[in-house]
Every structure is written in C-alpha cells, then in structure tokens.
Amino acid sequence: MVLIAVFNLWSCDNSSDIVEQEIVQQEETQPEETEQEAIEEEVIEEEKEETDKSFLLPNIDLSNWKVTLPIGSPDEVEPPEIIDYATDERLLPYMYNDSTDGTLVFYTLPSSSTANSSYSRTELREQMVPGSNSTNWTFAEGGRMKGTLAVPEITKDVNGDYHRTLVMQIHGRLTNEQRDLIGEDDNNAPPILKIYWQKGKIRVLTKMLKDLNFSDEEILHTNAWEDNEGYTFPAEIGTNKFTLEVIASDGRLEVLLNETDSVVFEDIHMEKWGIFENYFKAGNYLQSRDQGSYAKVKYYDLEVSH
C-alpha cells in the first residue's frame, strides 16, 4: 500500500510538470501567431493601397453638360442625372470611365442621329444653366474650352483610310426672336467651329459667308454660310494624348494644339458671326455611316470658362 501511494504521488507530480510545460509552450507559440497575423494584415493593406493608386478618374465636371447618345430618338441625359453617369445603365457602353488611365470614354457607331445631321454621336453639349438649352453666349462675351484627349480606336473605310470624327465644336444658335424672324421651326444655326481627328492629325474648319453683302436677316439662314478651306496642324497625333484649347472673343477665334501650335481666324466673317449665340460641344461625333465602323475618344480633362 505504501508503494502504491508513492507511485501515485510521483505520477501526480509528473502530470503537473507536463501541464506546466504545455502551458509554457502555448505561451511561447502565441506571439508567433500574432506576428503572422500582423504580417498578413500589412500585406493586405499594401495591396489595397496599390489598388487605390491604380484606380484613376477623369478630371471633368459634368454639372454644365448634357450628353447625346447614338441610340433612341436619340437619347439625351442632362444634369443632374448625368452626374451619376458611371452607374447609369443607359450610358453604357457609350460613355463610361476607364479607371486604368483616368479617362472619360466616348464610344459611338452609326445608329440614331440628331435633327440636321445624318451621323451619330456620343457628344457633350454645354448648358450654361444646367438642364436648359436657352442660355448661351456670344463672341462678344467670349468663351474658352480646353481639353486633354486621345483617339485610341477608330475604324478604316474600304480604301484603308481612317474614318474621321469630330472631337470639339462651337455651335451656333438662333435666339427665339431670330428664329421667328426668319420663320424657322427650331433654333438651329451652323457650327462656327469644327475640330476633327482626321487621318492621325487635327483639322480645323470654320464658316464663311457666301456673300458679304447679305443683310443681318439673311445671314441668320444656315445656307448663307459655308466651310472655309480649313487648317490642318502639321503635327502627327495618331493615337497619342494631346491638348486642344479654343478661345473665342469678339471677332476672333483661336485654336491651340498642345499649347504651342496655334491658328487664328480674325476677319470679316468672324465679325459677322457675332450675331449668333453659341455653345461648346466635346466628345465623339463619328463622320461615317459605314457598317461596322466605330470610334473611341478618351478625355482626360475638360474645362470651360466665360
């Protein structure tokens, strides 16, 4: 009996030692698990930061723009709805963000067209008063538009030549009084400025009167005006990013490419144009009805001032 008691006592002591050793081992391994968790959390944070850095957005305020789409009658989206363009299913795939390079993409193809045109567009129209086309500006009041953009994708015709697209405009508009005076049923007037991406270069067209002796009433008619010979900047743009700036003032119009090359129109035709109201346009107005044709125009930034 004594031997048994001693043996049991030794067994209890030995079990106690084992339990103590297990506790010590657990205490020693616990910091290693915590350290590993910290490392994993740090890696996740670094990956999140990298993701945040790679997600870019265009520097464009759409508060004073509406967009026309190449679908519907055609469809238009005005402020304030246009502010939520990124989540508006009506605008996909025609107007959306490319977060890899921080651009606002305008995609178009031959489909629905607006009145007074046979081509389709995904194009912004300036609205000085959000939601209204009635308030516009004259050359005497002046206006400036500047944008950084690119034409990364555009199709070719059957001859292997690139299609062309309008990327910026200044469009004329009749006041209600002018419209009624000449008996028109809308306020449409010609575009005084059209800027094309054409065969990898930037081409500028403005308007000139067919007859300088036209009266102030006669020059209100669209058919009183025609395109001038235009100007093509010598620089090859291709699919690269470039900057365009348009400055309109009393009797004068200037277009700058990449802040260095400039063309100025300052003549009697520009003086006569002062009779019209105007608004800026920017985007992708594809000048093709060929089956399968399309174009993408990317805007990195766009700003307007008056």
Rank of each mutant, 00 (worst) to 15 (best):
M1L: 07
F7Q: 11
L9H: 10
S11E: 12
D13P: 02
Q21T: 14
E22S: 10
V24T: 13
E28F: 07
T29A: 11
E35Q: 13
A38M: 14
I39Q: 13
E41L: 15
E49S: 12
E50T: 08
K53C: 09
K53M: 12
F55D: 13
P58T: 08
N59P: 00
D61P: 10
I71N: 00
I71C: 02
G72M: 04
V77E: 01
E81Q: 14
I82G: 01
I82V: 07
I83P: 00
R90A: 00
D98W: 04
D98L: 11
T100P: 01
D101G: 04
G102F: 04
T103H: 02
V105C: 09
T114L: 11
R125D: 11
Q127H: 05
M128D: 05
V129Y: 10
V129K: 14
G131S: 02
N136R: 14
W137H: 07
F139K: 06
K146I: 07
G147T: 11
G147V: 10
P152Q: 01
I154D: 04
T155N: 03
K156M: 13
Y162C: 05
Y162L: 07
V167I: 15
H171Q: 10
L174D: 03
R179M: 13
D180I: 10
D185E: 13
A189S: 07
L193G: 11
Q198H: 08
Q198L: 11
M208L: 12
M208Q: 15
M208Y: 07
L209G: 08
L209Y: 05
N213K: 15
F214I: 04
S215V: 03
H221F: 13
T222M: 15
T222I: 14
A224M: 06
E226C: 05
D227W: 13
D227H: 12
Y231D: 09
Y231T: 06
A235V: 13
E236H: 09
K241G: 08
L244T: 06
E245L: 06
E245R: 13
D250N: 10
G251N: 03
L253N: 02
V255L: 02
V255Q: 01
V255R: 00
L257Q: 05
L257G: 05
N258D: 15
N258K: 14
S262Q: 14
F265P: 00
E266D: 13
E266Y: 03
I268Q: 05
H269S: 03
E271D: 10
I275M: 10
N278H: 14
S288G: 05
R289C: 06
D290N: 12
G292I: 06
S293D: 07
A295Y: 02
V297K: 03
D301L: 05
D301E: 09
L302C: 06
